[in-house]
Each structure stands twice: as C-alpha cells, then as structure tokens.
Design a protein around this nucleic acid. Structure first.
Length: 637
RNA sequence: GCCGGUGUAGCUCAGUGGUAGAGCACUCGAUUCGUAAUCGAGCGGUCACGAGUUCGAAUCUCGUCACCGGCUCCA
C-alpha cells in the first residue's frame, strides 16, 4: 500500500523537543511506516503476515487485501463472513505465537506476472493452500502493478503472500506483539468499494518496548483534549439539545479564547489589518456566486427556507444559508467602496463564526466540529504586492509559533494538476503557474520547511496547510493559507490602477491561528492542560490559610488589586484546610497560587506556589504582584 | 455517511431477569488549620430514547440517537 501524501512529508523534518516518554519521534514513525530498511518496519510488516497466517488457521476461507505496517504497528484488511470480535483476539494471538515459535524463514520468490496471476486464481495467495476460490483482492492488486515492476512473493511456513517485502529473516525475529483494535475500511480506501474488516496490531523488538508503547498511550490519554477540556471546565457538548459537534464554551474556556483574540487583534493591528464584522447567514444567491453551493454543498447546513412569493416560486430569494466561510462576506465589504490601487493592500480581519455540516462520523472533540470561529482575514492586493504580503503572513505564523513554543511545523504547499484544469481547478493555466511560482519563491526565500503536494490545491488557487505536532505526537492541520485568483473575479472585485484601468485584485485567505476550536484543542494537548500564565483560564488563586478576619481581608485586598489589573484571579474562601485548597487549585491547573496566612499579613508578603513547581516561598507582596503582571504582559511561556 | 464497540447520579464505576449502589463532586453543620484530601449528615438516577418478550426488564430482542475506535472527508 502506498503511503498517503502526508505520511511522506514528515521525512524531511528536523525534529526537536519531544517528551521522553514518547516512544518514537514523528520522523522515526515516518521511517517505521515508509522505510523498508527500518527494522521496526520489517518486524511489523512480518507480523502482519503472521496475523494473516493465524487467521487462516482459524478461518481458511478469509480473503486478504492489504496488510502494511503503519505509524504505530500494522494492520491487515480481510473479507470474512465471521465477524471478528475482541473475544477472538486470544485465539488469534495463540496461533500467531505458534507461528513465531516455529521460527519459519521468510522466503522471497520472484515470479512472472502470469505465474502470479495463476497462483491468485488458484486462491494460492494470502492463503495456506490452494483454494476453490481465487484470491480476488490479490488478483486485483497484481493487475495494478506496473508492467516493469518485479512481482515478488513471500512465504513463511505454509503461508504465501503477494508482497514487495522486505521482511525479517525468520518469524522468530518478531519480538513482542499484540492485537489492538478492530475497524472496518473500504478496499483501497474508496467509499464505493466493499468494506473489509481491519485487524490492527502492533509489534516491537522487545517486550519492554511494547510495554513502553502502551505506557505512552496511557500518558497520551491523560492529555487528550476531550478529557482535559471536561476536567478543566473549558468546554462542553450537549448533543441531545444543542446538537452534535456544537461546542459550548464554559467561562474558563472562554478566557482562553479571549486571550487568543487579544493576541490576534494586537498582532493584526500592528500589521495593518482592519477589523470587520459580518452576519452568520447569507442568501442562496451569494453562495452560488462564491461557488460554495456547487462545490461545498455537502458540508453546508441545509438552507433556512422562509416565505415563497409569486415572483419567486421556488423560494430561492428567501433561502438563507449559514456561512461555511467568511470570504464571500468580506468580498462584499471590498466591493462596498470603490477601490484604488492606493487602497491596496486591503487587509480585512474577523474572528468569524462559520458552520459546516461535517458528517457525523467525522466529528472529533474540538478538532472537528460543526460551528467554529476562524482567525480569518482576507488580504486584497496587486500582483506586485503579493510576495511581500505573503511573506508577512508567513512571518506572522512564525511569530505565533514562537509564543506557543511550537518548535516544529511544516508548511504543505498544495498545487494544481494541469490535467484537471476546468474540472477540479479553475481553468486559468497561466494564473496557476504564476501564483504557484510566487508562493514557491516566498517559501524558499523564508527558509521554512515545506513540501510541495500536487493536485491538492483549492479550486480557486494554490494553498498552504500548516502541520504541527502536539506534545503526544498527534499531527494537526492547524491553519491554512490560500491564494485566490478566481473568486474575486466572480464577485467582480476591481481596483483602478495607475492608468485608471480596472483590475482584479489577488486575494490571500489566511488563518494563522486556525479556528478557536481546533487551535485550543491543540493547545490543550500541547500544554497537557498546563497553560502558561497569560493564557491560563485562572491565572492566580488566592488561598487564605485561616478564615480569621484580618487574614481574609488581606487576601481580599490582594484579590482586588489583581482584578484591577485585569488578572483572572479567584479567592478560595471555602472551609477546606490549606492542603485541600492547594489540591483543588492544582487539579484545575491554576497557574499561580498565592497562599496567605498570619505570617504573610504581618510581613506584607505572599507565599507563592506555581503549578508544577511547588512552593516557591515568600515574596514581598509588591514583587509577587509585579512578577505576575510582567509574565502576563510579556506572554512568557 | 459506512463498519465495529459503548451508553447506570455532575464525574469514575459496580450491579446480567425479582425493592437502583459506592467513592468523589454538590448542600448543610462542625472544624481555624502554613503547601496535594478535616469530620459528620443530607441531596441526587424515567438505568440514552422508543417499541417488544416476560407475572416482572438497567439486565433479553428490535429500532432510534449520541459518544468512542476506524474508513471517507477536513480548519
């Protein structure tokens, strides 16, 4: 099975800064998946064959499709009337152990195409013996192998499979393995093909590595943004009454949102952006003009149908859609005022709320939702201004990533396929080449890691997706940055150039902070819920040790002072003992705890405790407060 | 949308055909305490929803919805 595009990308990265419990760096994972000379790759690939061997011992009629090594293990897809369930795992693993213990050689055999076809027709591939029905998927795969490519088979014991290899020398070289999951998958990943059962497993050189992997998974579970989001009271869902995929932001999550917006507003203001506001809905006519209805209808909420009139029998004049993107509205703002080349570049920014009707199975915590707020802006510029504007956008990304301590990112540059002009991509061959050249030049000049992926562009222009990795190694497409030379034209957007000639501007769509939903989902996992002070939902909690009036008044005066400075501060006046108060504050991952008792009152001091760092001891009150204010102002990590 | 799994109190979970349980959270009372849980009492569930089987259903069957793991798709 060929690796998907984004599986291949990771190879070119230089890596840094991964937690030590992570079994493999993303690069190693990529190697494990893609590099046949990698030992884990061979172990896992071999283990997939052993899995197939075991399944055939139990169900000789099973038909196998593809069984490659993947990021954290391997899988094999198969067709079988019996539904494999987790209860079957022990039996299958038992058979696998026998095969490993037998220590069969993996023998490689090169065969002619005719020979391979003959064996497949006899049901002799991915099987233990000849069968009455052909090995249909293998037969299909053989037909897909280019004529000049060698066809090889691998045999371990009774089991023979069509396979490019390579494998370990003997089945006994598979150190430790475990079956992990069941899923279904379409044959060749195509929705129109039959669904197969997929059995997932993983394998390592040693038992120790296997155990370490499962320990890592446990650690990853603790950082899962869905779990932390609930525990830290950041957001919630109410699928029954509000609807699936529609997050509700609790006060603590809203605090994070507002910090991000503040950052965006400051940054964009400094970069010459202007803020705008637009409604959440638009009429059908605009959705048609923008191309959303023809191209995006599947991911849009169905329309709101208002009244029908005699002039408008099908009601189109009264059909409204929730917006899936902000660009059409922004285009209208561009068009609202006559524009001269002197007005360009015009940069319109809005944290706009969009709605996309994602398929139910695609929803995933905050990462895939149906309502989202985008760090959106559209930059209208002349072709001469394009490179500078595009460079500035890239620099903004890098600035943000530095603030968040995102040390590893990759820009994925998606270009068009000339063979699909007028079909998947607008038919403007010259503009495609021109804009792609401009983007490529900017990327090369900026020295940012990027990879070029053909045939993945948006229909209106080339685009860049930004991939980042959370602390647990989960890969995120966090932001997108797109060139649009087509839609401004559809909206009739123009400016007068120096010679008083009307020209169509280029448009850059950019969202360095992506959507609040996905970005915060990423940040939760990135920080494991331990937000830095400036971003923390609760920056300071004040914990008086006793409830005697003088101490409480002292705590209150600190509380008020911090609040006056805009610091998100809470005062814990519960009946708990200090230890209880500390526990609760630590559990909520409150950044800083100010513990105050009689001693502090008398010394005008504050005992400072920082989440994850423990008790830092007493500080003069003024110094403790200043430290907090500085850290917030500087957005220190 | 498709395949599979799961659904019991706000949370984590026990309960497999016979009167719905525990811990934490929450409320009230007592406790006045120096760096990760003070004590006691109380409140809290139409067992996801709907139908069916049964004398009797959280428990068995079917359907619906949602969530989880994948597939497809994507900010």
């Amino acid at each position: 099975m060929r690796p998907r595009n984004h599986d291949r990308l990771v190879l070119c990265l230089s890596h840094s800064c991964l937690p030590e419990y992570m079994a493999e760096t993303p690069e190693e994972k990529a190697t494990t998946r893609n590099d046949p000379t990698n030992e884990l790759y061979r172990i896992r690939h071999s283990c997939a064959h052993v899995l197939a061997t075991a399944i055939l011992r139990l169900w000789p009629e099973a038909q196998f499709a593809a069984g490659p090594p993947v990021e954290n293990g391997f899988y094999y897809d198969l067709e079988l009337d019996h539904r494999i369930t987790p209860e079957d795992f022990p039996r299958i693993e038992e058979e696998m152990k026998k095969e490993i213990k037998a220590n069969h050689l993996f023998e490689r055999m090169v065969v002619s195409r005719d020979e391979a076809i003959r064996l497949a027709e006899e049901g002799r591939l991915a099987s233990l013996a000849a069968r009455s029905v052909p090995s249909k998927f293998k037969l299909d795969i053989i037909h897909g192998i280019p004529a000049d490519e060698e066809i090889s088979l691998y045999r371990n014991g009774d089991f023979t499979d069509l396979c490019a290899g390579p494998h370990v020398v003997r089945t006994g070289n598979i150190g430790a393995f475990k079956l992990t999951a069941l899923a279904s998958a379409y044959y060749k990943g195509n929705e129109r093909n039959p669904q197969l059962q997929r059995v997932y497993g993983t394998a390592f050189k040693t038992r120790r590595d296997l155990d370490a992997y499962f320990a890592m998974l446990e650690e990853a579970k603790k950082r899962d943004h869905r779990k932390l989001g609930h525990e830290l009271e950041l957001f919630t869902f109410d699928p029954d009454d509000v609807g699936p995929g529609l997050p509700l932001w609790l006060p603590r999550g809203t605090a994070v949102i507002e910090e991000l917006e503040k950052l965006a507003k400051e940054t964009e203001f400094a970069a010459g952006y202007q803020r705008v506001r637009t409604p959440h809905v638009a009429k059908e006519s605009m959705c048609l003009r923008s191309g959303h209805l023809p191209y995006y209808k599947e991911s849009m909420f169905p329309p709101m149908q208002l009244t029908e009139t005699q002039d408008d029998p099908d009601g189109a004049e009264h059909r409204y859609y929730l917006k899936a993107m902000n660009c059409p509205h922004h285009h209208k703002l561009y068009a609202a005022v006559p524009r001269s080349y002197r007005d360009l570049p015009l940069r319109l920014a809005e944290y706009g709320t969009c709605y996309r009707y994602e398929q139910s199975g695609e929803l995933f915590g905050l990462m895939r939702v149906r309502s989202m707020q985008m760090n959106d802006a559209h930059i209208y510029c002349t072709p001469e201004q394009f490179e500078q504007e595009f460079t500035a956008v890239n620099e903004m990304y890098v600035k943000y990533f530095k603030i968040f301590g995102i040390e590893k990112y990759l820009m994925r540059f998606s270009t068009h396929d000339p063979n699909r002009l007028g079909e998947k991509f607008v038919g403007e061959p010259e503009l495609w080449l021109q804009t792609e050249d401009m983007v490529r030049r900017v990327l090369q000049r900026s020295g940012i890691d990027y990879i070029e992926v053909p045939n993945e562009a948006a229909f209106y222009g080339p685009k860049i997706d930004v991939q980042v990795w959370s602390a647990i190694g989960r890969e995120f497409t966090i932001a997108t940055n797109q060139v649009d030379f087509a839609v401004p034209q559809r909206f009739g957007l123009v400016y007068k150039d120096r010679e008083n000639v009307e020209k169509t501007p280029l448009c850059i769509h950019r969202a360095p902070l992506g959507t609040h939903e996905r970005f915060i989902g990423f940040l939760i996992e990135h920080y494991a819920g331990n937000f830095p002070l400036w971003l923390n939902p609760e920056q300071v909690r004040i914990l008086p040790i006793t409830t005697e009036d003088a101490v409480v008044d002292y705590a209150k005066s600190i509380h008020q002072e911090l609040r006056r400075h805009g610091v998100r501060t809470e005062l814990d006046l519960s009946a708990d003992k200090v230890n209880g108060k500390i526990l609760r504050a630590e559990q909520m991952k409150v950044h800083t705890m100010f513990v105050v008792g009689r001693r502090d009152l008398e010394a005008d001091s504050i005992s400072v405790r920082v989440h994850g760092k423990g008790n830092l001891g007493a500080r003069p009150r003024e110094a403790a407060v200043t430290d907090v204010l500085t850290s917030i102002r500087e957005r220190l990590p």
